[in-house]
Design a protein around this nucleic acid. Sequence first.
DNA 1: ACAGTTTCCCGTAAATGC
DNA 2: TGCATTTACGGGAAACTG
Lengths: 408, 408
Amino acid sequence: EKQPCMPTHPQKPLIIKTGVQFTTKVRLLVKLPEVDYQLKVKTTFDKDLPPGRVSRQFFILTNNTKVMDIEDYTNGCLSVEFRHLQLKEKKYINGAKGNEGLLSVTEELHSLSFEACFTVQGLTIDLETCSLPLVVISNVSQLPGGWASVMWYNLLTDEPRNLAFFGNPPRANWSQLSEVLSWQFSTLAGRGLNKEQLTMLGEKLLGPHASCSDYQVSWSKFSKENIPGKPFSFWMWLDSILELIKKHLLPVWNENYIMGFVSKEMERTLLKDRDPGTFLLRFSESHLGGITFTWVEHSDNGDVKLNSVEPYTKNRLSALPFADIIRNYKVISDGVVPENPLKFLYPDIPKDEAFGRLYNSHSNVITTPPPSQSPEPPMTPGEFDMLNEHLCTFDIDTVSVQTLLFGG
Amino acid sequence: EKQPCMPTHPQKPLIIKTGVQFTTKVRLLVKLPEVDYQLKVKTTFDKDLPPGRVSRQFFILTNNTKVMDIEDYTNGCLSVEFRHLQLKEKKYINGAKGNEGLLSVTEELHSLSFEACFTVQGLTIDLETCSLPLVVISNVSQLPGGWASVMWYNLLTDEPRNLAFFGNPPRANWSQLSEVLSWQFSTLAGRGLNKEQLTMLGEKLLGPHASCSDYQVSWSKFSKENIPGKPFSFWMWLDSILELIKKHLLPVWNENYIMGFVSKEMERTLLKDRDPGTFLLRFSESHLGGITFTWVEHSDNGDVKLNSVEPYTKNRLSALPFADIIRNYKVISDGVVPENPLKFLYPDIPKDEAFGRLYNSHSNVITTPPPSQSPEPPMTPGEFDMLNEHLCTFDIDTVSVQTLLFGG
DNA sequence: ACAGTTTCCCGTAAATGC
DNA sequence: TGCATTTACGGGAAACTG
């Protein structure tokens, strides 16, 4: 049987959006003695949470009971997959929202519980397990915040179900965190971040004085506080770039043509001694999801001048792919013949040699519609791969099953 | 009380999308003697349609009963407005879909019924009325087809409720139809179509030999059959242009700078004797929702050459407004200095004189994000204005009320 | 296999709630 | 009032269904 619909945002599991279908699967790890009746599993959302512990309460709209089935004839394992599950918020008649006041919705952790009950050799056995902490959102605009929480939790704790984690979230070592950030890029595009790129990110987060690997980053600095002088947090900024790459820059990113994370100072250091027309590609630090290029120009008196273009965002890039923008970019100034100032991709690759294979449109004259989106690249392995299977795939804990089987 | 949400697609009433809220209002035209209890009105979808008459059946998801209220103290009129109504399709357990097989969903007409019952001076009075025919769609992609049906019905019949209308739809005189088409533009933008533009449309629909005003257009030619050699019907094509104007071309359209509907032959006739650099703006006939410009060029040997650019569609226009595209358009050919070939808007208005006020971005160098959408223009009056009030606003027929009042 | 139709759900905008 | 959060729904794409 083919799956009629995939789970939500497959790249970001453990986040459930209300009103959108999701899928979950439980597997029984012990081999049971023959049972002559069907083993029913019931799934419940936030089963044994004392009301008021979390500010919002949800329930599963759709049918939440299903019979276990033999998953695979090679191991005879019993499993059940719930599909088309959907979450809805409970509305309180008398506004008794037990809001703790401190946490945002994406810091509020929830869980899915699974229960099964069966009788074997006169013993009644209750099985129960639950998922890793889940974040519930109501709009995809909350997805970046939710994913920040999932990353922080799984990076910093091995506890299976500490729903109060964000009441007092621990700090992360920059060495751990930078690895996770790099993985975000490699799961997206097959290319992580190099040392220089990570150094720039570390300095952005911790200040220029120290990006030593034992420096610690607070949860707040990572995703709650705004970057000084900017209306967005570090993670919101970085996630906007991930989205931009995913939708509009994959070919160029995968060719390693986007230096991307370069401070203004480093940019000057790199470019100042280069030939005129040398340029590099850099993500905007002032706007969400923007990319720009900076090129070297020599004034008549020999001064080195660096020019940048206003960042391109998804709107512009969906009208014309980035490689074609680079190809056809022209500077028009009064009295001067328009010219493309971009000659060599840093350090010295002739522009057309680098981008030639990525060009789509032919020229300004014969304009063609934007080409269809390039297909999603295959994912590369990484520590978070466990999350990249089905949403909430977990096994019933063998130990507790055995306890029940022999201790009942 | 402020309205919490507007009805669906306010420009296209009498079309209801399943799962999307709509609003309706009934008004009692006769002044009733004092009643000491509240007058309840119940609304029902497709109340007395024999099952099987239409292929799909729908029901109102939300509460469908409401109490009438005094609308306006100057006339003391009773009325009730239903808000947040929502339609859902009935699913048949045993596929007894009474599909007539011939009609498409947007040709299937439905109606909303309203009932009220009250007692006055010992007489029990039943009031009932119903809406003009409605089209039910499940996706906005069906909106153009639905609006074609609403237009055709209201253009060609005065019957209040001929739900079988599209079983054998009448033809329309070109004189009537062209007026309706022009109104589509004037309700959108405050500017209808002129004689030349309508002539081009008439020839497109009827062939070049005759666009005499008593020529008749069939329903099929208008919106069902594809234009020969094209994968879309006449109305789909025209509607795609209306959408393009609404979202991306309002300022330019309202200035009357878009000739728009010009045959290739007419274009040549108009441009061939003009100065080089004279251009006109024309909608694409080969692609949905596209606009292009054609300009005159003189070859070295004196031959007149007409060039056109590949049509701009909503994707490109949302990245850069059309006036700026015209401003910065450049032809780049090998060995020739890039130049903007657009000099004079036909017949002879210097480009910047025409478009200057509409320019937004300054040049290619300092690029700015596209400006926010310009606000909806006020509507102009027209025969279809009655439709452009609330969705399904109608009065209970005075005659039948009196019949009931005195004939009971 | 296919075309007409519906469902799904992201992403933007507006409404709502606190 | 302002900000956080939810709701609404257009639009593109996938899934469904005869």
